[in-house]
């Protein structure tokens, strides 16, 4: 190599390695979420100390503005840029007729990229039904219950309920989860009964807290997936979600009813009433088309509004 390449190579090596060292915990969390490998299993703890110290003292980068936290005040959502602490009672609708939610409708939407598609549509519809309601979408892509280092959903949901007095939490997640769960030094292989039990315990962590605080949970089940691993995961996950929601007396929304059962091969379309094919899944074989998102959202809204319970 001539001096030019040597110089740029040296700069790159130093810059990348020093930054990897100072951000080692973040790199580990990223690799953990992305590839389900944990550097901390192989590297000595001492190497992580500088990055963990920096994490404590340095401010976090900007986070995404959520549904009810606009930085620029929207027109009809309560106090600008603040939570609606005391939403006015007795909105346009009579609560008892509206089903699972009462007049102080406070709904948290939690989940991964599946929820990122559904929440905006559902919230827009819900705002029309509950103008004084409070809705927050905390969904974040590439998250789930398997990897909790990047984002610990049970802890986040518990904290959100405690801080903002939500009375309903809607959860829709799963495709990032069919991987080994690493908890401390313990590894739970996917798929296995041990994995299922561990996964179940994380679901129950949310449900226990919600039950104790009289918060309603609505859990949206997964649809069939093109990828074999995700499909295998969806079967186990839906079983867990459904069983636990039933045992706690919460509401489980099956997307299999909308798009076909998990025992069927993946199909990106369904037939509408006129017998025409309607594309409901996205081309990646995991997510949904706008039509599919509208269908899930409409079912969710109807469950919240109680029309199915009438």
């Amino acid at each position: 190599m001539r001096s030019g390449p040597k110089k740029i190579f040296l700069i790159a090596v130093v810059a990348i390695l020093i930054n990897a060292f100072f951000w080692l915990d973040s790199v580990d969390a990223y690799l953990n979420a992305q590839y389900h490998v944990t550097l901390s299993e192989y590297l000595p703890d001492a190497l992580f100390k500088p990055s963990l110290t920096l994490k404590k003292i340095l401010p976090k980068g900007p986070e995404k503005v959520t549904a009810e936290q606009p930085t620029v005040a929207p027109s009809n959502s309560g106090a600008p840029g603040k939570l609606t602490d005391s939403p006015s009672r007795g909105g346009t609708l009579q609560t008892k007729e509206r089903g699972v939610l009462d007049a102080q409708v406070r709904v948290l939407f939690a989940g991964d990229s599946m929820m990122q598609g559904v929440a905006p549509i559902a919230i827009s519809s819900l705002r029309k039904i509950y103008p004084d309601g409070y809705f927050e979408d905390l969904s974040k892509q590439s998250t789930g219950l398997t990897v909790n280092r990047y984002l610990d959903w049970p802890e986040t949901i518990k904290a959100q309920i405690a801080q903002k007095n939500f009375n309903t939490v809607v959860i829709f997640l799963g495709p990032n989860d069919p991987w080994d769960i690493v908890d401390g030094k313990q590894r739970y292989k996917f798929p296995s009964l041990e994995w299922e039990n561990k996964y179940r315990s994380r679901v129950k962590e949310v449900l226990d807290y919600a039950s104790a605080h009289k918060v309603k949970i609505i859990w949206i089940g997964l649809s069939s997936m093109r990828d074999d691993r995700l499909q295998k995961g969806a079967v186990i996950q839906n079983k867990v979600f459904k069983e636990e929601m039933n045992s706690y007396g919460f509401t489980y929304i099956s997307t299999e009813d909308l798009f076909g059962g998990l025992d069927q091969p993946f199909k990106n379309y369904i037939y509408d009433a006129g017998g025409k094919e309607l594309v409901v899944r996205a081309s990646d074989g995991t997510h949904y088309s706008p039509q599919g998102l509208r269908m899930i959202s409409s079912k969710l809204v109807s469950v919240i509004a109680g029309s199915e319970n009438k």
């Binding site: 606009p70 929207p74 705002r127």
Partner: peptide
């Protein structure tokens, strides 16, 4: 780009029905 997206853009385009003149202008 990330700051603009997270602070002004995504929220307005995801929830277009609850915006106002200032928030649309900013978005």
């Amino acid at each position: 780009a990330n700051w603009l997206q997270n602070t002004y853009v995504d929220h307005a385009f995801e929830y277009p029905d609850i915006q106002n003149f200032i928030s649309v202008f900013c978005a």
